[in-house]
Design a protein around this nucleic acid. Sequence first.
DNA 1: ATTTTATTGCGACATTATCGCAATTAAGGA
DNA 2: TCCTTAATTGCGATAATGTCGCAATAAAAT
Lengths: 130, 130
Amino acid sequence: MKRRNTDSKKAILELLESSKSALSHDMIQGIISRNIDRATIYRVLNRFCEDKIVRRIVGDDGKQYFAYCINCVEKKQKNNHFHFRCTQCGKVECLNEEVKVALPDGYEMHNFNGIVSGICSDCASLRSGE
Amino acid sequence: MKRRNTDSKKAILELLESSKSALSHDMIQGIISRNIDRATIYRVLNRFCEDKIVRRIVGDDGKQYFAYCINCVEKKQKNNHFHFRCTQCGKVECLNEEVKVALPDGYEMHNFNGIVSGICSDCASLRSGE
DNA sequence: ATTTTATTGCGACATTATCGCAATTAAGGA
DNA sequence: TCCTTAATTGCGATAATGTCGCAATAAAAT
Ligand SMILES: [Mn+2]
Ligand SMILES: [Mn+2]
Ligand SMILES: [Zn+2]
Ligand SMILES: [Zn+2]
């Protein structure tokens, strides 16, 4: 199945590339100026994931977040790492530390999804009065 | 808010206690003989989590799984550990290995949610012909 | 036995994500 | 440039998961 270059695709990819944190569907919908349909955004994102251009992170809020892979590679995060989700501001960012998982014999790992949620330093300092 | 001992509560807790793996709402609904309302099951589970009797695990399928805490304590898994979700049979089980997460300065961890999904040894061996 | 109020059942609702289908449109070739 | 093909989009419907309001029920205390 050949991929085509569409405006929606370009807009979403540019957004993810330039974003320092992983973005959920509604974040993307909210940020992007072009009016792209909800289903289309999901379909574009799913295609990116199939093509391994983007990686999908499932938050402990049950929502999907999407991050441009090269961001991770640049930061030497090719391997498994946790993501931190701030329950205050919603940011989902990489934690720069490789995680190794030891599976029992005969187990096959297909996906790694490590999430830590809490309060990021920005929100924590705001809360305690600058 | 005082807790009361109801049949629903007892049935669900017994099920979780005796289960070797974490259970989702629909697993519980399916297994239990008594006919308990969906909303009630969720409310009972949420109360268990508030009371720290049960812990909530969010799968990379976006669904919530619930596990009796003492199970973990017995296995010396009081601390953070991954759970393995088999995409074939649906089992969600503990991985007996403590995980330490290093957060940047000023970050506060409120929840840990580590999931690895794939194929468990049972399903893998079945697939490759016994 | 009576009172208090935590809990339940039911239906409605919210949210997130997917799907079917007809209409568009990118891409490649004539 | 025009045509053809099929990947992509928009729209509405649908699925799946989980929560909420409210009246009815029932556990526990008096
Ligand atoms: Mn990352
Ligand atoms: Mn566990
Ligand atoms: Zn924050
Ligand atoms: Zn399995």
